[in-house]
Design a protein around this nucleic acid. Structure first.
Lengths: 258, 258
DNA sequence: CCTCCGATTGCGTATTTTGCAACGCGCATT
DNA sequence: AATGCGCGTTGCAAAATACGCAATCGGAGG
């Protein structure tokens, strides 16, 4: 809709992969160097990019500033912090906080494992919908019709032997998640990692975010992982309370309508 | 230089303070609603903003994604991670990693305190130059002429009773920092907090970043803080080694030219 | 000292963006 | 239930703005 802005944002995205020269950048958006230069200058004046040496541009500090400021604004993140940190400290495993927005699941917080073998992830990163425990938890709470649309639009690339590759099977899995109140990723995303996730609920009873715990299989087998289920659920409950959730609701709040 | 881009970036910065309506946003950049709408749509297509409800816009997930991806690119951050995490785990105090770029000192990493009383900070935030320990460490390494320019352009707002408000005194302080190999913020920024900072050096021996440790005065008095100096210096040394620094240099590397 | 390569700038053109005004839509009010 | 109001949205024509070009500048290397 706005050409110059569109081009500028493309440049910024490009810079996220590392510093680039003016020529490289003008090549990416296919414009004259002078045009790219002017865009970069404007970006620079807002501290979105900065020069590195004379020939290179890279992302500026405003990106970090704005992103982290906005991240702090998220109420769930702040409210869940304590519970998540405790879980991480207690178990030593990687703990993630993820949220569903604009048709994608993104990690909004992360407490890294103290173990040498770690899952690769990053705050701001999108989680695959079909093979992560957090996505299952978040999608399970979507209204029936919305869920259909999302699942219809989903891809199911087979990433490991256990990856669910069939929409019907996935919907059945979500059903299970809804009933149980937690989700599992039994090495469906990465061969050597399995995860557990549980919903964090707000005052209205609906799911605001998901907490997950990721453990390398070499550290803990599946039964060992499940041994931490209560701990995870307790963490999710504590975080939910911080978010205004009250246990004593009309029965449909925590464990479905049974 | 580029009007529409300039306006769009202003919008983004505005959104970092929280969700806004179309009217509020068009007011900020003083254009017609339709103009703001078109900019927002472009930003939305790049996932820089997203709609919240029908009447509100807020920062989108691309911001988090790009910012954190770029943050991971920083070698110092990755290299220093282990040492910083250890220090944080060992002491329980807030540990910061800060870097000097484009004439400002920004926090590029943070390990939060486990104590209830905590310093407010945020990754991406700019640290004041005249009253923080990290800034002192980073500025102390600047070449003489560059340093002059920076200090001449600096402001010295008095934030506490101990804040250094005089450029000459500040330069003398930096001299001290250079000699000692560490910097102190003795409640110069906030009344109830004091900090220690030390430089992290790279292969060339020059300062890449600064580690700091921030402690509430109610938890530890000044002598108590200084009791952790060796621990902090050891952390900085470990991080430096990870960054390619080698102890056995020409003598000027770690403790000045004595 | 000269040459070459990339960054930078001034300028005229026309593409792009802008403001306007009309329209549509949902919500609240009576 | 009907009406009005506020806000987001769209089509259009004017013109401001961003664009590409080509000339210039400035620094690094021979």
């Amino acid at each position: 809709m706005s050409q110059s802005l569109d081009r500028a944002l493309t440049l910024v995205a490009q810079l996220a992969t590392g510093p680039k020269t003016l020529d490289e950048l003008s090549g990416v958006i296919d414009v004259h160097k002078s045009t790219a230069l002017r865009l970069l200058r404007t970006l620079e004046s807002h501290r979105f990019v900065q020069r590195e040496g004379v020939h290179h541009y890279r992302l500026g500090t405003a990106m970090f500033d704005l992103a982290n400021r906005a991240l702090e604004e998220r109420d769930v993140r702040r409210s869940a912090e304590r519970a998540l940190r405790d879980l991480n400290a207690r178990t030593g495993f990687t703990v993630h906080l993820a949220s569903y927005e604009a048709d994608e699941v993104i990690y909004i917080d992360k407490y890294d494992s103290t173990h040498p073998v770690r899952m690769y992830s990053r705050v701001g990163r999108r989680a695959p919908l079909h093979c992560t425990a957090v996505a299952k938890v978040l999608l399970a709470d979507l209204p029936e019709t919305r869920l259909r649309e999302v699942v219809d639009a989903m891809e199911f690339p087979k990433l490991t032997a256990n990856t669910i590759t069939d929409p019907a099977a996935y919907l059945a899995e979500l059903e299970l998640v809804r009933d149980r109140g937690y989700a599992v990723d039994d090495s469906e995303h990465e061969d050597f990692i399995h995860c557990l996730a549980a919903p964090i609920r707000g005052a209205g009873g609906d799911v605001l975010a998901a907490v997950s715990m990721s453990v390398p299989k070499v550290v803990l087998d599946f039964d060992g992982l499940m041994g931490h289920l209560e701990d995870l659920l307790e963490t999710a409950r504590a975080a939910s309370v911080e978010c205004g959730w009250t246990d004593t609701r009309e029965g449909r709040a925590v464990r479905g309508q049974d």
